[in-house]
Design a protein around this nucleic acid. Structure first.
Length: 569
RNA sequence: GGCUCCGUAGUUCAAUGGAUAGAACGGCCGCCUCCUAAGCGGCAGAUACAGGUUCGACUCCUGUCGGGGCUACCA
């Protein structure tokens, strides 16, 4: 049940029977609590178009709404305010019905390909991979929650020139299996030798060629390397509760067989131009100021392919073999131009049917504390494995400081859960498009708008329910809120489905974090200010019933964020 | 140079063109004989600058200043 949708439909239906036919009602959450629950903003715009007085239009609409039974059953109060706002207050029984309503299921289930995480297997995962991995994971969960069929695609970088270098280094004297424990250092050492030692560089290049020609002995080494690297990634996914598994990995190397067919298609469509001995596609859409078309290189002058070509092959695979209705790429904003180009190219070459939607869901960059780009070359990179370890240790410290007589066997479990939840929430609670400053203190913070806060409110709600010794069957099904504190809490819960719907449409998980936080703060207030277990039976049962719904909403919402709740902390 | 994104409290983040720009952290002041103080209440504090469009602008447009990113053979 989507409150805003219901209000909009019903109000616009009434408007359509007047001189306001076809005008939008523009329903919004009330900007201040004293204005009620929702506001109708459309009267000012309508007045402008009709050249009438907005307050008069608002007055007319108010009358029409008040005499309509579809409004009467859900709205308790309508007020005209300011230049022509209509402020609506909803009926408590309608609010609680909204709280009880099932999650918003999609009307038409689609097959959604979600491309996310996609780390470069030549290096270890670092904080730069956090956003795509966690936002993609959360959106995949949200789409599934709504009834879509989700196909996760981890488009790992397991192919290309750098692997020749790594294999050559793996192969060189004095390198033991131990060296692979730290992939980042292994990569840096290999890179260093590549840059300093011409013989080694030459050997690396020959490995690339051998790899591309499927030379068995080299392939064995390559596979060994990929396996080790993937196991690092899988450990991270498992720790972070990311829903990516072996079956979701479909790396660049898997497209190498289909690239010739892609090239053939491009050629057949007459799109290929040879320029400076590289094969390029020049599209009309991409020109500089002088009208010079900008190229997309699909084959290098040495015959090698680039990631553009691989991405085209991936599009065809996803549109045709995977039968996607939508293909979503969770990749950072630096690749905006790249995706514009390959989407346009894929359309032109007929690799993706017009009805299949392709979208680049971009995210902002990571900056250091000075506001400068957080680049790997700086040597400042923070490995995800280290971040996870640090966060768990921090959580354990805090837990022990707060619980001196804690059962030691549960300490590790609780600290681990909180540590992971903190990392996920700190990332997901930010708007995905803005650049973000990486700060250990921020990520590891456990006060205020953080995962531990939400988890703590959940444990408080559970604690009340356990102490009450009642179950849901003992409690009223539709506890109508009484008083402003209960009302506010129930309203925030009633709006959760609207928010999940927005998250899904705009791929903005931070909206869900915000709503859950508001439910949690409203519950904190409820918990602090109202007696629950010690209140008279009628109040006790009603408040416990509301508490039970809080527990459910928090747990379900956090689950969508990939955060597991704890019964105690 | 061209294209593009971004400048909001000391800091980190919010705000489908709507009413008095919200939080959190940090700072200051309060609250545990009472359902878990990882909590609650209160105070101080911000839209880079200049124009414009609009009944109404953090939001849209133009310019200025400042900072990213992308821009032909890395991915």
């Amino acid at each position: 049940m989507l409150l805003k949708k219901i209000l909009t439909e019903r109000i616009e239906a009434i408007m359509s029977r007047s001189n306001l036919d076809g005008m939008p009602a523009l329903i919004q959450n009330a900007s201040r609590e004293e204005f009620g629950d929702y506001q109708v903003n459309g009267m000012m715009a309508a007045a402008k178009r009709l050249k009438e007085n907005p307050r008069e239009l608002a007055g007319n609409l108010k009358q029409a709404l008040e005499s309509d039974e579809t409004i009467e059953e859900i709205v308790s109060k309508i007020e005209i305010a300011g230049p022509g706002f209509l402020n609506l207050t909803l009926k408590p029984d309608f609010l609680i019905r909204a709280v009880n309503s099932p999650p918003p299921q999609t009307d038409n289930a689609e097959t959604v390909v979600v491309d996310f995480s996609s780390p470069n297997l030549a290096k270890e995962m670092h904080v730069g991979h956090l956003r795509t991995t966690l936002i993609g994971d959360t959106m995949a969960r949200v789409f599934e929650y709504q009834g879509h069929k989700v196909i996760r695609q981890n488009h790992v970088g397991d192919w290309g020139t750098q692997f020749g270098m790594l294999i050559a280094y793996l192969d060189s004297a004095g390198t033991s299996a131990d060296d692979l424990k730290d992939l980042e250092i292994f990569y840096q050492k290999a890179k260093k030798q590549f840059d300093e030692d011409p013989d080694f560089a030459e050997k690396s290049r020959s490995y690339v060629v051998a790899l591309q020609q499927d030379q068995p002995d080299v392939l064995v080494k390559w596979r060994a390397f990929i396996e080790i690297s993937m196991s690092h990634c899988e450990a991270i996914y498992s720790d972070l509760n990311v829903t990516l598994h072996q079956k979701d990995t479909f790396g660049e190397s898997q497209y190498k067989g289909t690239i010739p067919a892609i090239m053939e298609t491009l050629t057949k469509e007459g799109l290929i131009t040879k320029s400076n001995s590289a094969l390029c596609v020049f599209l009309d859409e991409f020109t500089d100021k002088n009208g010079e078309k900008q190229p997309v290189i699909v084959q290098k002058s040495d015959g090698g392919y680039l990631y553009s070509t691989t991405d085209l092959a991936a599009i065809r695979h996803r549109a045709h073999e995977l039968r996607a209705d939508r293909i979503l790429y969770f990749v950072d904003a630096r690749q905006t131009l790249h995706f514009k180009q390959i989407f346009a190219l894929a359309r032109k070459a007929g690799l993706c049917p017009p009805k299949v939607v392709m979208d680049h869901i971009s995210n902002g960059a990571i900056l250091n504390k000075a506001g400068k780009p957080f680049k790997t070359r700086d040597g400042n990179t923070v490995k995800l494995a280290d971040l996870i370890k640090e966060s768990r240790e921090r959580a354990k410290e805090i837990f022990l400081a707060k619980n001196d007589k804690a059962d030691l066997s549960s300490v590790e479990e609780i600290a681990n859960a909180i540590g992971i939840a903190s990392i996920r929430y700190s990332e997901l609670s930010k708007h995905r498009e803005t650049d973000y400053v990486f700060d250990w203190e921020m990520v590891l913070s456990m006060e205020g708008n953080t995962a531990p806060y939400l988890m703590y409110m959940y444990t408080r709600s559970k604690s009340l329910l356990i102490r009450s010794e009642l179950t849901d069957s003992d409690l009223p099904k539709e506890p109508q809120p009484e008083g402003p504190i209960e009302r506010r809490l129930v309203l925030k819960m009633a709006q959760l489905n609207d928010v999940i719907d927005s998250v899904s449409r705009e791929c903005l998980p931070h909206l869900l974090c915000l709503q859950l936080y508001e439910i949690a703060t409203a519950f904190a207030r409820f918990y602090e200010e109202l007696p629950i277990l010690s209140s008279p039976e009628k109040d006790r049962l009603r408040r416990l019933a509301i508490t039970s719904k809080v527990a459910t909403k928090l747990s379900n919402g956090l689950d969508l964020l990939g955060i597991k709740v704890l019964e105690k902390m």
